[in-house]
């Protein structure tokens, strides 16, 4: 039997189509109005010409782009190293905090104390402590300032990520552990094969979000000396008395973050869909 919409349904379809066209036109009109207002507001401001010269100077941008890019390469390498190690540290600390039994009491206390203190400590202070405090001890084989600064970032972010992982571990229903244990799996095996895979999947969106934040914060390492993109831009600004290098660095940071942000959004969307699909 072939189906053709009833006259009433055809009316509905026509009505909805009309509404859709109207919405598109409205959106276009409001975008045009807002865009014009913004453009007029900024370019019409009394100081616009000066701002344009000292923030958006094409020659300065081209001149300092290579140095800033070189700095950005350092940021990128730092991001990869710091993100992987901070994730590993966070996972380890989160698992340590779930251990039960008197033997693990000191481990639990240490892990808990760590997440409490390093989430409270400003990253800048940790970087100063690591990069200037540790070499001050004059120990044999003290690593490079770059390594120490990276260590400070890893230790600080590890504390945040540990809490995210812990939330994930606690969100796995106890019946899952019961099912795993009833099959003869040990606590470790249940954790490794049943709890952690589900926990990590659930907290993937917030973990990635923290990684995006980390991407910006790796730049703070320049406080300890190494020349990253921000420091390279700062040098340019000081030499030219022109803020354009900062704009260049800012745009590059956004470009660098875009793929990561896109991945985060994608993962979040998928997670939300899975949740809505029900168990």
């Amino acid at each position: 039997m072939t189906y053709s919409p009833s006259p009433r349904q055809q009316e509905r379809i026509a009505y909805r189509r009309g509404r859709a066209v109207r919405s598109v036109l409205l959106a276009a009109a409001s975008t045009a109005v807002v865009g014009t207002l913004l453009a007029v507001g900024i370019t019409g401001a009394p100081g616009w010409t000066r701002v344009k010269e000292s923030f958006f100077d094409p020659d300065t941008a081209v001149e300092y782009l290579p140095a800033i890019l070189e700095g950005l390469w350092l940021n990128l390498r730092l991001l990869v190293v710091c993100a992987s190690l901070a994730l590993a540290l966070g996972l380890l600390v989160a698992v340590l905090r779930t251990l039960r039994g008197p033997v693990f009491f000191p481990v639990r206390v240490l892990a808990t104390g760590y997440t409490y203190s390093f989430r409270g400590l400003p990253l800048i202070i940790v970087i100063y402590l690591f990069a200037f405090g540790i070499p001050g001890l004059r120990l044999q084989g003290t690593p490079d300032v770059l390594v120490l600064g990276a260590g400070a970032i890893i230790v600080t972010y590890g504390a945040y990520l540990a809490e995210v992982f812990r939330a994930g571990i606690e969100s796995v229903h106890p019946s899952q552990i019961a099912a795993a244990r009833s099959l003869g799996l040990s606590y470790r095996q249940a954790m490794r094969h049943v709890v952690l895979p589900q926990a990590v999947r659930r907290v993937a969106p917030p973990l990635l979000n923290d990684t995006v934040a980390l991407q910006k914060d790796v730049g703070l390492i320049s406080l300890a000396g190494p020349i990253d993109a921000i420091r390279a831009a700062q040098i340019g600004v000081a030499q030219e008395a022109d803020f354009t290098p900062y704009i260049v660095a800012g745009v590059l940071f956004v470009l660098l973050a875009l793929p990561l942000i896109a991945v985060t959004d994608g993962v979040t969307l998928r997670a939300a869909r899975r949740q809505n699909a029900g168990n």
């Binding site: 019961a178 099912a179 049943v194 895979p197 589900q198």
Partner: peptide, 10 residues
């Protein structure tokens, strides 16, 4: 075997 199956969803 449990009332709520408790299969591992992942």
């Amino acid at each position: 075997v449990f009332q709520s199956y408790n299969l591992f969803p992942h």
